[in-house]
């Protein structure tokens, strides 16, 4: 469907802008009677990384970037996955960044996109193009938003679904705290 002037479109980040907000992640896993809920805040620094700061049920920070994934609990690194060693990990970050920031151009490279758009809300239903290995594990992705992304549903297949809700998201100029800078690094 073609966007018209009356229809709302996802607002893309301009160079030098970052996205901050809060998240609630409800994770439905096969065999688990109740959802695993985590809450916290996030910062997306385009090209540099996504800082996922979980506050509840316990504090931990996950940084996802083109270089890989680093998980820290209580200031101690508990896991490090290097994109240099895991095929598709770098690309996976590109997709996450694109999904959180509503960058459809990047998403279209790996997914077939079905759009539903009206004056107040847009919705993208993404199904992986079979050839792309980095997302072939996913069943589908559903991104909804107004001006910015509001929710993402990730269906990982086999009864595993992540439902992400973003609150108070705001586009801001690039200002990072010392800690954040050290988390995402300065490297593009």
């Amino acid at each position: 469907m073609r966007a018209t002037a009356a229809e709302i479109t996802p607002q893309a980040l301009l160079p030098g802008q970052i996205l901050r907000g809060h998240f609630v992640q409800d994770r439905q896993l096969a065999g688990f009677p109740k959802q695993l809920r985590s809450e916290g805040s996030f910062v997306l620094v385009p090209g540099r990384g996504l800082i996922w700061r979980s506050e509840a049920p316990f504090k931990n920070i996950t940084v996802i970037s083109r270089r890989g994934i680093v998980q820290t609990v209580g200031g101690k690194e508990t896991m490090r996955l290097s994109a240099a060693r895991i095929p598709g990990l770098g690309q996976l970050y590109d997709i996450m960044e694109a999904a959180v920031s509503g960058d459809t151009t990047t998403l279209e490279q790996a997914f077939t996109i079905q759009r539903t758009i009206d004056a107040h809300q847009w919705q993208l239903l993404l199904t992986p193009k079979s050839a792309d290995v980095s997302v072939s594990q996913l069943k589908s992705l559903s991104v909804k938003g107004g001006r910015l992304v509001d929710t993402i549903d990730v269906d990982k297949g086999g009864g595993d679904v992540d439902h992400l809700t973003f609150l108070n998201s705001a586009i801001e100029p690039l200002t990072l705290s010392e800690e954040e800078r050290s988390l995402v690094g300065s490297q593009k």
Partner: peptide, 24 residues
């Protein structure tokens, strides 16, 4: 306990390889 912490963080964390089947 450190391994439990790591596993818990992954189960709650973003993306990752947490899955119901794997957990079982």
């Amino acid at each position: 306990e450190k391994l439990v912490t790591r596993a818990r963080a992954t189960m709650y964390g973003p993306g990752g390889f947490a899955s119901g089947t794997l957990f079982a």
